[in-house]
Amino acid sequence: MAQSAPDTARKYDLGFARWVYENVEGGDKLSMCMQCGVCSGSCPIGTEMDHGPRKLFMMIRAGMKEAVLTSNTLWNCTKCYRCVVRCPRGVPVTYILGGLGTKAVEMGYVKTEDTVRFSKAFWWSAKTFGRTDERLVTSRYHFSGGFGEGVKKSLANLKIALGMFKAGRLHLGAPHKVKGTKNLQAILAKAQEIEERAGETER
């Protein structure tokens, strides 16, 4: 039986590794990776990842752009930094995964990923109050997929919520805030401005 040639033009982008090197935070250290496996072997949730960091880094070298930017490894990473501490080559694994995630969202590769929605809810709380309010982050995340899904998810988590409430881990009433949320927002706005400016000079 005749086999059709693999669609390499679409699946392999041979400039991808260079692009990661130039555009992703920590990507310039990627060339140090020696594929030893310490990162994936150390990762507490390595079994929950489709590829894990080591293989993902090899896929970057191979130019598998789409597969990399849609990988759940970017989202299942808990940012525990175990891999960074142990990597024998000083590769900032966690930063690279985070940086790739940011790019994947910007470039529209990720739309429905749960972790993205959770990250957005988390950031909203951090930005608005200077704190994460468990109750508000969770409900914002639960309802980010529509009303029906929100009710369903909230009910499913009721038992956990009650447990947390009893343990004094979930408070009701006005959310905790840092002093001077206005200052915080000014700082964040400035940071955003600097980042955008840096982005422009790069281009």
Binding site: Q35, C36, G37, V38, C39, S40, G41, S42, C43, G46, T47, H51, G52, R54, K55, R86, P88
Partner: peptide, 27 residues
């Protein structure tokens, strides 16, 4: 072909090596 991530002590007291088999990607 794997540099192990870490070693823990199992319930029976034996050392247990954890890591990623880099050729098969199995943990």
């Amino acid at each position: 072909k794997s540099k192990p991530g870490h070693i823990e002590i199992g319930d029976d007291g034996r050392p247990v090596i954890r890591g990623e088999h880099t050729l098969s990607r199995e943990i």
